[in-house]
Design a protein around this nucleic acid. Structure first.
Length: 552
DNA sequence: CAGCGCTACCACACCCC
DNA sequence: GGTGTGGTAGCG
């Protein structure tokens, strides 16, 4: 008995000393219970800008989500948290039923599509076939425009169809390839679907869904040189120029090898009998809300689920469940950083200077930056070239052109021009590095030199630079067997590398204790809204035992 | 108290034939 | 009638 008492005393003394060494915080700080885990970040805002401001102030890899919380008018509040933490609370599907990813403006993202048509208005339409044909067309366009290779196996295909409406989301999982932002994605999608606009535009075309013969191609019968005439009300000159340019490009690219694609399968009727595209072009706007995997619109019980005909299977991992993998893959702005990442762009307004200087018909295959290019060794070599005779030249900016594998450096301070045999007084020069042919040459911004299209002799790149380049390329081949061997990818410049694009491999799903607390803001009403969003739209679901809302 | 970013559409002014 | 502009309902 005495022994037992002594043991208990010792136990209590030990506990007391433990609390003396590690006292409890005076301030109550709710967090996921494992102290070694990252702190809980779960903040709600009424305003999107506030949410983004918080993200900026946040060191962790957090993202903005929109939560629908009122039936009818689609009112939303904004949640900031990590992908990991969101999934933790989200996966049970007992709460957070109507969530949207906010695809941030100016953030790199994946290629994605929203597809839909009304079944009643399109009785003959075969949705699955249309999806398959679209994917085929997109893959061809990616190959033609960017030399990016992909197939249906790289496309996460999510279904949200009902008896009334065929509805899909496609999210492309390209290897080491992303778009600059979702505006560029939209530009690319519109460019790629240009032949389909011609089809809709042709008023004399009384095609009905039943007669959507796949051999029938209005585009091929309508020469590109007829120009863009369908958008009678359009005032967007840039857009038209772009389409025209693109038509030329398509012509150039396609004429020799194949005729223009038949996109008649993309044309569907809306419920008032007007012709529309199967592809919703309204989803490429700034800060677009894109419904999450397994979320439904408020007031409806139709969540996005992996489609029957989905062919993308995430790589199995020990730490991350299959569902979590699908969730992470479905996030449009969840971009894994890699040092061989290619950032695709597709501009509408043509950069005239570039077109003039480099005889480019499209700016859709370039990346650009300041001071440091993806090839530091070549930067060093260029700096060596422009530091002569006591003049300290520098790299003002650089552009990389994928098809030509051409690095174009705009030089500052150093103005020596081979054409005139002296330095220009007020115009800067360029150094161009041709990686394909391993040579460099000089051009310049001077109007006279430009007028005569001056280009200096070519000089071979020094062996060190060539060697480094070859070594890098070998690395790339060994790490990515699917890479198109016609393409050499520059590395993502470190200046624009962002940790925001990565997600933590830490997975909290395993080994977590039983008490969890969600942190809300000080705003009671907001907390109520959050609670509603957690409860689902009708508010009759029970609060899960392990979930407590703490209002500070 | 409290969403956001558009576009299609309309009304109207102005211009020119 | 053609074209530009400005405001807004309503879509995604």
């Amino acid at each position: 008995m005495k022994r037992k008492w002594e043991a208990r005393l010792k136990q209590i003394e030990e506990r007391a000393s433990h609390y003396e060494r590690e006292p409890l915080s005076l301030v109550y700080r709710p967090r996921l219970s494992k102290p070694e885990e990252p702190p809980s970040i779960w903040k709600l805002f009424h305003r999107q800008t506030q949410a983004f401001n918080f993200v900026k102030s946040c060191k962790e890899d957090v993202h903005v989500f929109a939560l629908e919380y009122k039936v009818g008018d689609g009112q939303r509040i904004y949640l900031v948290t990590t992908y990991t933490q969101l999934w933790f609370y989200y996966k049970s599907r007992r709460n957070l039923l109507h969530c949207y990813e906010v695809i941030p403006e100016n953030a790199v993202c994946k290629l994605y599509f929203d597809l839909e048509f009304n079944r009643l208005a399109n009785p003959g339409a075969d949705g699955k076939k249309m999806v398959a044909l679209l994917i085929e067309h997109v893959c061809k366009a990616l190959q033609q425009f960017y030399r990016v290779r992909c197939s249906a196996e790289d496309v996460l295909n999510l279904d949200s169809s009902t008896n009334e409406k065929f509805s899909r989301h496609l999210i492309f999982q390209l290897h080491d390839v992303v778009f600059k932002d979702n505006i560029h994605v939209g530009n690319f999608v519109r460019k790629m679907l240009e032949p389909a606009f011609h089809l809709i535009a042709s008023e004399d075309d009384d095609m009905t869904p039943e007669t959507m013969g796949h051999e029938f191609s209005h585009f091929s019968e309508t020469p590109v040189k007829q120009g863009i005439s369908f958008s009678k009300k359009s005032t967007d000159k840039d857009m038209e120029e772009s389409w025209t340019t693109n038509s030329k490009k398509l012509e150039r690219l396609g004429s020799a090898k194949q005729s223009s694609p038949d996109l008649s399968f993309l044309i569907v009727m809306n419920n008032v009998g007007e012709k529309h595209l199967f592809v919703d072009l309204g989803v490429y706007t700034r800060n677009r809300n894109f419904r999450l995997y397994k979320s439904s619109k408020i007031g409806k019980y139709v969540p996005l689920e992996v489609a029957e005909d989905n062919k993308f299977y995430p790589v199995q991992s020990e730490n991350i469940s299959k569902e979590n993998q699908y969730f992470l893959s479905s996030l449009v702005s969840n971009v894994r950083f890699s040092d061989t990442l290619r950032i695709l762009t597709c501009d509408i307004s043509q950069n005239k200077q570039r077109v003039e200087n480099f005889n480019h018909t499209s700016t859709s295959e370039t990346i650009e930056g300041f001071q440091c290019s993806p090839y530091p060794e070549i930067d060093q070599f260029v700096l060596l070239l422009v530091n002569k005779n006591g003049i300290k030249g520098g790299i003002r900016r650089w552009n990389y052109f994928f098809p030509e594998e051409l690095l174009v450096y705009d030089i500052c301070k150093y103005r020596w021009c081979e054409n005139i045999g002296r330095a220009h007084k007020s115009n800067n020069i360029m150094i161009l590095v041709d990686l394909k042919n391993e040579v460099w040459y000089q051009k310049c911004h001077d109007p006279i030199c430009k007028a005569e299209n001056f280009k200096s002799d070519c000089f071979p790149l020094p062996a060190e630079v060539r060697l480094l380049f070859l070594l890098k390329e070998e690395e790339e081949f060994t790490t990515d067997e699917t890479r198109d061997n016609e393409t050499k990818n520059p590395h993502e410049p470190s200046s624009s590398a962002s940790s925001k694009g990565t997600f933590s491999d830490a997975d909290w799903d395993n080994g977590i204790d039983d008490a969890y607390i969600l942190e809300a803001t000080e705003d009671a009403e907001l907390a109520e809204a959050a609670e509603n969003s957690l409860l689902g739209y009708n508010g009759i679901d029970e609060i899960p035992d392990e979930l407590i809302i703490e209002v500070l």
